[in-house]
Design a protein around this nucleic acid. Structure first.
Lengths: 112, 112
DNA sequence: TATCGTTATGTCTTGGCAAATATAACGATT
DNA sequence: AATCGTTATATTTGCCAAGACATAACGATA
């Protein structure tokens, strides 16, 4: 019965997308599973798409966001760096603040 | 050399999109040109796309946003209602406020 | 050195959306 | 009733991005 205000935010670095909601979801899934391929499965996206996203994040960031290992015990894996974790946390916080801010602004529409 | 934060906001009503940036651009162009077909040309989108967008806006809104006339002098035309004008103004204001808010939040990323 | 489950890429196919095209309906003006 | 530039809508065509598929590279372990 009411209006809702929705938003999507993202962070760019030198005209490249660094972080958005999809990328943050992926980073969180990597943190939980310890592997890029498992993260892709848990998000129901192809491994290729996940890899391209992560590659783009790491190329846009000033410091590495993940450490990826190939081969070895278990075949390899991926994990977030401390920098990556703090980026994810900062993005989440900004996003939540933005939602709260927009909810207040919505009154301007409802009163019309 | 710096990070930028970007956003896209939109307003939904009963799970239908009422207003977004594209729709607001279209409404402004209608206001300036007095016609949906001229508005479509000025935005370099097809007439069909413009018509579908406007139709969706009018179906989602509680009151008419435009008055469209078919035939007659000049073939017809479209113009914003007072309600339509106030919706556009409210959206613009919310959007600008959002940008300013996010610019402040960006410090949380820069300091990492 | 054979195995294993990853990361890292290239290629090929397809489904859905956008654009182009066509045409009907309309009504004030002449 | 003929004209005109719209609004309104259906149909077809074309294109691109996402997905499916395939495969190479890797290195710890045994």
């Amino acid at each position: 019965m009411g209006y809702k205000i929705k938003s999507r935010i993202w962070i760019e670095s030198e005209n490249n997308v660094l972080l958005g909601e999809g990328r943050v979801h992926l980073l969180k899934a990597i943190q939980e599973t310890g592997s890029l391929s498992k993260a892709a499965k848990s998000l129901s996206i192809s491994y290729k798409k996940a890899w391209q996203l992560l590659d783009s994040v790491n190329k846009s960031a000033k410091k590495p966001v993940t450490i990826n290992s190939i081969g070895g015990k278990g075949g390899g894996g991926a994990e977030l760096t401390e920098y990556g974790k703090s980026l994810v946390n900062a993005f989440d916080e900004i996003n939540k603040n933005c939602w709260a801010f927009l909810d207040k602004q919505l009154e301007k529409i409802k009163s019309l």
